[in-house]
Amino acid sequence: MENVTTQHIDDKGQKMIEITITMPTQAYFLSGIRDFTLTLIKNMTNFSEQWAYRFQSIVDELCNNAIEHGSKEGEIIKIVFQNNPKDFIQIMVEDTGTAAQHMKADEINKLIESRKKQNALNGLIRGRGLPKIVSEWTDELEFTDTEKGGIRVRVKKFLNDPKLKQAIASNDPTHIVLN
């Protein structure tokens, strides 16, 4: 695995850190990416520990999808973390589009929408990663076709999300959440 870290100022004049990792399409590298994600979220963002674990799952699911459905063996996928400490974290995963069962962005979007409606006991082993886990735990989820024929998936989570406030409040033992 290789990584590049850059720091720049965004449109709003806020400091943003971008980390790019390239990873061979072998699933045994995923545990390293999960560890990296957990460490990154815990130490470089203002998200809670609960969200660090959630991002760990999000990144694992996105990378695994890029490996299994997006790229041939022996190629590389690209993972980009963009962290604006006061506003959001954005993660992008890009595959090469060379896998046998590769789909276009439109097809993936339709598949995810249809699977969102399925109940927990749907009889399938697969099909929960993107529609249930990634979709539920992010504010934006977007698939686009790349010029090279692959898929770029982009997820974004804002710090000022109401669901996030509940998670932060829940860490306070004096705060009772009633739903």
């Binding site: 799952s57 749907n122 009889g123 082993i125 697969r126 099909g127 990663g129």
Partner: peptide, 16 residues
């Protein structure tokens, strides 16, 4: 320590 979506799929199948 960790389970991915496929592990959840298997868990669901075992439960069924």
């Amino acid at each position: 320590e960790y389970m991915n979506s496929k592990a959840i799929g298997y868990l669901t199948d075992w439960y069924s």
